[in-house]
Design a protein around this nucleic acid. Structure first.
Length: 85
DNA sequence: GCGCTGACTGTCA
DNA sequence: ATGACAGCCAGCG
């Protein structure tokens, strides 16, 4: 586990339920603007239940991806949390 | 230390 | 508006 990963997890954990943040926004929050791809990489490899990675979507409003059932599951979770996509 | 990969992003055609 | 291309960053072999 690297510091970068830890920072990403913390930033994602700070996202309130029903809200979403783009990978770029998270990257900026941890002081690495432009590292959106690296952030996505952390999400993809690190499956941590303490991190609401389903609240992290693309900057264009698309869901992006999910390691636990694909975009369908992600969309379902977001809907159940109150996020209208 | 080098090069490839990916749940991305912004720009151009 | 939709698709293709290039740029950026961290992790891994």
């Amino acid at each position: 586990m690297t510091q970068f990963t830890t920072d990403v997890e913390e930033a994602v954990r700070s996202i309130p339920a029903g809200e979403v943040r783009s990978y770029q926004a998270v990257a900026r929050a941890i002081g690495r603007p432009g590292a959106a791809r690296a952030v996505a990489n952390v999400m993809a490899r690190n499956i941590d239940p303490t991190v609401p990675c389903h609240r992290v979507i693309r900057a264009d409003g698309k869901l992006g991806g999910y390691n636990r059932g694909g975009e369908e599951a992600k969309r379902a979770i977001l809907l159940s949390e109150g996020y209208q996509c």
